[in-house]
Every structure is written in C-alpha cells, then in structure tokens.
Write a protein that binds this DNA or RNA. Structure first.
Length: 679
DNA sequence: CACGGGACTCTTTTT
DNA sequence: GAGTCCCGTG
C-alpha cells in the first residue's frame, strides 16, 4: 500500500473523476484504500459535498474501521461529521431502524445469526415433519437455498416457481414458514439486513427519494464480492444520477461460493452506459518477480478487463518451491526455514505468514511451532461471536430488548440447567403457538398448569420472572454494564461456566471472554455519538454485528507468525509468505475440480501470491494423510503455470535420524542455530 | 438428563 | 486419526 501521500496519475484520475459512474479496477496492492479515502476527502474539501451526504460501503467491519481511521486523518472533525463508512449490513440495519414504520418490523427487532437460523429451521422441519432429522446436511442445504433465494430477491411466494427438484419444493415451503417465523419473532437474519432495505427502496418511492437525496455520493469497496441484492441496493441508492465509485478486482473474487456475483462487474458496464473505467496496475507491495508469477498464473483465466500488475521494487528474491516427503515433513520444513530466515535476517515473527487452503492444514503446523516455541497467531476458526459463552450472554441481552425473541429464549432457558427438558419445551411451544404468545410470555401464563406438571410451570415462571425483573431494572439504568454483570451472576451462568469447563485454562478463557464482552458493551456506550445510540437497546443490537473484541485482542501482542487460510489472507500483506500444499485436489481443491470452478481456485492462488512483498516460498508434499491413510499426491497444476525461469526447486534433503523425539530434535536444532549465530 | 459408544466426515466464511 | 454429532441406555 502506498503510504506516501502522493498519488500516482491513475490514482489521481480516479480520485478526481466525479462526473458520473466510475469503476476502478484495482489490482492487488495498488493502493485502492488510499484512493477511496483520499477521494472522500476530495469530495468534501474540493467538491463541497458535505460529509453526511457521502456513504462508503465495505464488506467487513475491519475494512470499515480501517477506512474510517484513514479518512479521519485527512478530514477535520467538523468536516467529517456524519460521514457514513460501514459494512453493507450495518448500513442496512441503520436504514431499517430509520424507516422502521415502513417495514414489517417492530421496535427492537432481533438479528439472528446463522446458528439461530439453523435452530429455527430444525424446529420447523420437526414440527412439519418434513422427512425429519436427517438434519445437519439437509438443514445446511435448506439454509443455503433460502439464502440464495433471498439474495436473488425472490420472495417465499415466488420460490416454488424456481424449483428444479422435489427437495427444492420442500425448501420453498420451508422458506415460507421460516419467513413467517422470523416476522412473528420480530427478528431478521443477516440476509434481511440487505434484502429488506432493497425491497423497501424498490417499492416505496418516497423512501427511495429520501435515501437517494441523502446519499449524494457512494463508494463501494471490494465490488467484485457483491451479490445480486447488494448490487440492486447500490443501483437504487445512486439512482439515475449514478454518482458513485466502485472499486474492485475480478481476479480477487474468491467468494462466489457464498453468493458473490463477480459478473456484477460486467453488469455495471451495461447498466451504466457512461461508466468510466480506470485501471490501477502499479503495485506498491511486491517485487516484480512475485508479480510476474502472479500475472503468469492469472493469465490462464478468462478476463472481462485485462490488467497487468507491475512494480518498481526490483526483481527481488527468487521464488522457492520445496518438495517434501509428506505433510509432517512439510510443516517441519516450513517452520525450520522460517526460523532460520528470521534469525539470520533479524526479522520479526509478524513479518511471516503461512497460507493454506483448508484450516485442517494448520494443525500439524501448530504442533511444530509449539515445539519450537514460536509465537503464532491463528486466524480463522470460530470468531468471537461464534463462541458459546458469548452467544449465551448475548441471548440473555437479546431477550431483554426483545421479549418476543424465542430463539434467544430457547438458547438460555436451560443454560444453566434449570431442569427444563425437551418435553416441557415442546408443550410450552405448542401452548405459545395456540395462544399467539411469545415463549417468554407463555412461560409465566397461569393456564400452563393445565398442560404440564406443576413442577415444570414453577420452573418456567421463575425464569420468566427473573428475566422480567431484570428487563425492568436494566432499561432504566444509566449504568447498564454492572447490572448486566449482576444479572449473569444471579442467573448462575458464571458458576455454570466454572463447573462445566474442562480445564482451568478453559474456565479462564471463557470467563475472560465474558468480561471482554462487558468491556466492549461499555466502550460502545462511551463511544456513541448521540443519545439515540447510547441506549442499551441499540447498543445490544449493534453488538451482534460487531467484532471489536477481536480487534482488541489483535492489538495486544502482535509479534507473531501469521497462520491463515488463503481466503482469510485477502487484503493483507506480509514481507515473507509461505503457501503450503500445492497439490492437485488440495489447491485446486477436489470439489472445485469436480464442479469445474478451477478459475476461482486459480484466483485463490493469485491472491496468495500477491500477499508477498519480498519472499515467496511454495511447498508441496508427495504424500499426505487422508483419513488415516497415506495418499499419494500430484503436484498442483498451478506450479506449471508459474514462470519456470523464476523458480528455484528444492528437492527434499536427507531425513534426520528416525525415531528421535521431536521435542528433543527441535531443541537440538535451536541450539545449533544459536551457536551458528554467535560466531 | 447425562453420559458414552458408534457413525460420520474431512474447503473456503462475513455479516 | 480425530473431532463432532446423534442416539440409545442407565
């Protein structure tokens, strides 16, 4: 990324072009974030567009955060007031809140995450007895299908017209039930945050005018990752004026499998006849050798827009390819190579990244790194909000701001254990349905004694009472966080964490996580700009979308080797990069070979290569463990697509003595190195 | 309801 | 081979 405040000619052109729709084809490392942030400043300072009339959209919170920070440095506090830089989802959420009366939603609606939605679908399938509990796979399929329908803006009533298999017909039916369910809970899923605003703008001219007027200029980052609903949302927001800049790179589209439509890039050209296209091809990140490799590989893909990266950073180091005996050997080599390189060149751990196709590949690597006592940071895995304890606490909070949130109710009713089992819940659910009550309301209903044993009703009533008491106390409390802490203690939840933890270490992490959640609720309250954002309801609703804790964690001790999937590496850069597992059926992955989506795998390879600034090392194993069995592997076709004269193939060295304790071996290796360095 | 054995799978993931 | 999930038994 170009840190210098000086933009090159192309970047300047992209910044200054404001006459109409603009597509910036920004190759990897071409300084696109600089262009976007500088353009925002330009629009405000040179074009006289007030900041509150400018909206910038990104895909991740992290990207939004970074952008805000960088714009903040360019604009004065007054100048930047009201600027909207957010993810698509957060933008959608705000729009829904502002336009609440024009939506089917009531105040304080809940946002359900994938897990909640899964539960609902499972429940619906059970209740409807749709070929029952072949669950897991079927549920996942149904979720995917429903999400696809939503993102293509197909309403439940239309869904059956698109069905191709009997299974689809079932899913279409399920989709209807699911939507009805969400509305009954006064809840939305993540897709709704895009789809509902889009529909609203489509159907309601008054609302559309209001928003088109508000959004005078729109900037969209990572445009190649938009899905249909997102693109239509963009079109509706910019209207016929088409005052927008979309920044993207079709070669870095690696999310088609979750609904992204890279075709949207070509579509832009059709939908806006006067679209201006500017290419950013100068790369400020990598040596020209690395870029040559990247260009070489990606040339094998068909292209809508041609683009070739170049840089003036010199040829740089040769690209190394290491063939290893098996996966264990591969990890060992990478780790030793990295360690040697680090010590010899006086680099930091954080200067290195190891990239791989699947998370499972990190496991061997981890053991290896631990033996060598190398600090590492594993990204991916489950996110903060995916952790059970966080979801539990969030569910307590959710039911407080939205008593109709049955999904939250189900999550916490028996966490910690309150002797309320599936049978009781089944009856409660039935009763609630018949009387059109939420589960929480039903739990304290007097008439329950008629349908279930007394003992169960007392338990339910007690729980409902507990929640209701805290709801009252919390909502008119100026200092909600201590109250929340008290609630979780009184609920016995903290004790429950202590009792159920497998190890003392796990207990500590879990309790720390919960404490971090409290802290971040507090900081969200402190940071809120207006009174409206300060109230606990809005804070909690926002929490579902945020990942600020992950950021806090990252900020702490950062000198660590980075371990990440190729997907997770997009947008990042490292001086020295290793890419592991360059084998057929792994990269490209076998499912992609079967589905003939090699192009996306190739882009993945391209993304990986372009992460490297100075050094790039690719590794492959001759054999790999696969389900307990050793499997013979074939070198990846992508290796053939590299410029062969820039490569240094390293065969495998003689294996160190067999049957040596790996820990001892690691120690030995370290000592040798230290001795070497002392000289 | 909790525990444990057997079956099953093993690409990528944000909001 | 290991981790997870489902279901049956105590």
């Amino acid at each position: 990324m170009s840190k210098a405040s000086q933009l090159n000619d192309k970047q300047l052109e992209a910044m200054k072009y404001t006459q109409g729709p603009l597509l910036v084809l920004a190759g990897a490392g071409s300084g696109k974030t600089s262009v976007i942030t500088r353009k925002i400043a330009y629009l405000v300072q040179q074009c006289g567009i007030p900041a509150h009339r400018i909206t910038a959209m990104t895909f991740t919170n992290k990207a939004a955060r970074e952008m805000k920070e960088r714009v903040g440095k360019l604009l004065g506090k007054e100048e930047g007031k009201g600027l909207s830089v957010s993810t698509f989802h957060t933008f959608g959420l705000n729009l829904l809140r502002i336009e609440l009366k024009n939506t089917p939603l009531k105040n304080n609606f809940s946002i359900l995450d994938a897990d909640d939605c899964k539960r609902i679908l499972m429940d619906l399938m059970h209740r409807d007895n749709l070929s029952g509990a072949e669950s897991k796979e079927l549920i996942a399929k149904a979720m995917k299908k429903i999400s696809d329908w939503k993102n293509d803006l197909i309403v439940p009533e239309q869904a059956h017209t698109t069905c191709e298999t009997p299974e689809d017909v079932q899913f279409a039916h399920l989709y209807q039930l699911y939507e009805r369910n969400l509305r009954a809970y006064n809840a939305v899923d993540f897709d709704d945050l895009i789809v509902m605003p889009t529909r609203l703008l489509q159907d309601n001219a008054e609302v559309r005018d209001r928003w088109q007027n508000r959004v005078r200029y729109l900037l969209v980052d990572e445009y190649q990752d938009t899905n249909t609903a997102q693109y239509i949302l963009v079109k509706l927001l910019v209207g016929v004026m088409g005052q927008f800049t979309a920044v993207g790179d079709d070669d870095q589209s690696i999310y088609a499998w979750r609904g992204a439509k890279p075709e949207n890039m070509a579509l832009l050209k059709e939908d806006f006849r006067n679209l201006k296209v500017i290419k950013l091809e100068q790369n400020y990140r990598s040596t020209s050798r690395i870029l040559k490799a990247a260009n070489h590989v990606i040339e094998n893909n068909p292209h809508i827009f041609d683009k070739k990266l170049w840089s003036d950073k010199g040829h740089g180091e040769v690209i190394r390819i290491i063939t290893c005996r098996n996966d264990d050997d591969e990890s060992e080599r990478v780790v030793k190579d990295l360690l040697t390189h680090k010590l010899m060149n006086g680099k930091n751990w954080k200067d290195y990244a190891v990239l791989y196709r699947g998370n499972f590949q990190a496991r061997v690597l981890e053991t290896q790194l631990r033996q060598m006592q190398i600090p590492y940071k594993l990204s991916g895995g489950q996110s903060f909000f995916g952790r059970a304890e966080i979801k539990d606490v969030m569910s307590y909070l959710r039911i407080i701001i939205n008593p109709e949130d049955d999904s939250a109710f189900l999550r916490i009713i028996n966490t910690p254990k309150r002797a309320i089992g599936p049978v009781t819940l089944e009856k409660l659910g039935l009763f609630a349905q018949e009387n059109h009550l939420s589960l929480l309301a039903a739990a304290s209903d007097q008439r329950l004694t008629m349908v279930m044993p007394k003992k169960a009703t007392t338990q339910l009533a007690e729980f409902a009472g507990f929640i209701n008491d805290f709801t009252r106390e919390l909502l008119d409390d100026d200092e909600p966080v201590p109250k929340i802490r008290q609630m979780m203690n009184d609920a016995g939840y903290i004790d429950y964490l202590r009792e159920t933890a497998a190890t003392p270490a796990q207990e500590k992490t879990k309790i720390d996580n919960v404490e971090m959640l409290y802290t971040s609720i507090q900081s969200l309250i402190n940071r809120a700009e207006d009174v409206d954002e300060k109230n606990i309801e809005s804070v909690i609703r926002k929490m579902v979308l945020l990942d600020m804790l992950e950021q806090q964690q990252e900020d702490e001790d950062t000198d660590k080797v980075n371990l990440l999937t190729l997907h997770a590496s997009k947008g990042l850069e490292f001086p020295f990069v290793y890419i592991m597992g360059l084998e057929e059926e792994l990269l490209p992955h076998k499912n992609s070979i079967a589905a003939e989506t090699i192009e996306e795998e190739r882009r993945l390879m391209y993304v990986g290569i372009t992460r490297a600034q100075q050094g790039l090392t690719l590794t492959l194993a001759e054999q790999r463990k696969n389900g307990g069995q050793m499997k013979q592997m074939t070198p990846s076709r992508f290796l053939d697509e590299l410029p062969q004269d820039e490569l240094d193939w390293l065969g495998r060295k003689k294996k160190l003595a067999e049957n040596v304790d790996p820990k001892q071996q690691a120690q030995q290796y370290l000592q040798n190195l230290k001795a070497l360095l002392k000289r």
